[in-house]
């Protein structure tokens, strides 16, 4: 714990599952942001596990209203604070899961980016609608079995690749976009800090494994986030001032591990054959080439 973080901004006693990646992300992010922060949160795991009345895990002011509008509510707060003569030292953050960012919350997010509100949006990505019971989302990767993209005789599970949310966000020409994981804590802190310090909208897309939805051992959450990066499944980068053609890869694995190491630890991929895994490997190789490694 660094000196300034003598008080945890994300209190214990939340009802997240054992080993939840979001718990790690939230502690790191809120401790980095500090007490002078106002947050909005979308409906989802984070909200239901932390705000059951009359308890709250939030040590900062928080408003939850609906699923698709964390960024719009934050827009209202940001403008109101500016209008009402506040000095602009308060961080405004919006939090949403992948459903609340990639899918239902995307319009609100795009609007917030376009209007250039000084808001940092955090997307906690566990690659499916976990709060409602592991349904497929546009964040769900190819081959994952979910309750609405189940693997079966005629189905490989999810049959579409993951939507490139962070790159789409960067295409809004906003000051800061980054990807991060719960395994790379220093990197996550640095990126959150940069996002908060940016003069305008920012997005930090945080990869946060979910033992319940991915069906992996609860002690594997950090390891899986690390493996996602080491295998090239998830690429750590940042783009400043809309420099989407010149992404800064913030962590390049020295030698990429085979994707099977990552997939085989998760039962959502248990149905995949060696052939499938080869196909996924090929796609990752192509993607990594695009990213320049």
């Amino acid at each position: 714990m660094s000196e300034k973080e003598d008080k945890e901004m994300f209190a214990s006693g939340h009802r997240m599952c054992a080993g939840c990646g979001e718990g790690i992300a939230m502690r790191t992010i809120l401790n980095e942001a500090g007490p002078n922060t106002i947050a909005t949160v979308a409906t989802g795991c984070l909200e239901v596990t932390t705000t059951a009345y009359p308890q709250t895990s939030w040590e900062i002011p928080l408003i939850h209203s609906a699923f698709e509008n964390a960024a719009s509510v934050a827009s209202g707060i940001e403008v109101a604070l500016k209008q009402m003569d506040k000095k602009g030292e308060t961080n405004i953050m919006s939090f949403a899961g992948d459903g609340g960012t990639f899918d239902i919350g995307f319009q609100a997010l795009s609007g917030m980016f376009e209007r250039k509100h000084n808001v940092t949006h955090i997307c906690l990505d566990n690659e499916a609608y976990m709060n409602t019971g592991i349904q497929r989302c546009s964040s769900t990767p190819y081959g994952a079995s979910t309750t609405t993209s189940p693997a079966g005789k005629f189905s490989i599970g999810e049959d579409r690749p993951k939507k490139p949310l962070a790159r789409i966000s960067a295409a809004h020409d906003i000051p800061y976009v980054a990807t991060a994981t719960i395994a790379h804590i220093k990197d996550l802190k640095k990126k959150v800090r940069k996002a908060l310090d940016a003069d305008g909208p920012a997005l930090v897309h945080v990869f946060a494994p979910c033992p319940t939805g991915w069906r992996h051992a609860s002690n594997d959450s950090v390891e899986l986030a690390r493996l996602a990066v080491e295998t090239g499944v998830f690429v750590l980068w940042e783009a400043e001032d809309g420099e989407i053609c010149d992404l800064n890869i913030t962590h390049k694995p020295k030698e990429r591990k085979p994707v099977g190491e990552y997939l085989k630890k998760q039962r959502r991929f248990a149905h995949l054959t060696e052939e499938h895994i080869e196909k996924i490997q090929k796609e990752i190789d192509e993607k990594c080439e695009q990213y320049g490694f």
């Binding site: 209190a11 214990s12 059951a52 009345y53 009359p54 308890q55 709250t56």
Partner: peptide, 17 residues
């Protein structure tokens, strides 16, 4: 339903899980 008791989830002990 405004909750003025920030951090009050600490009252909820999850150790029993």
């Amino acid at each position: 339903g405004i909750n003025k008791d920030a951090g009050s989830s600490k009252e909820y002990k999850t150790g029993g899980w």
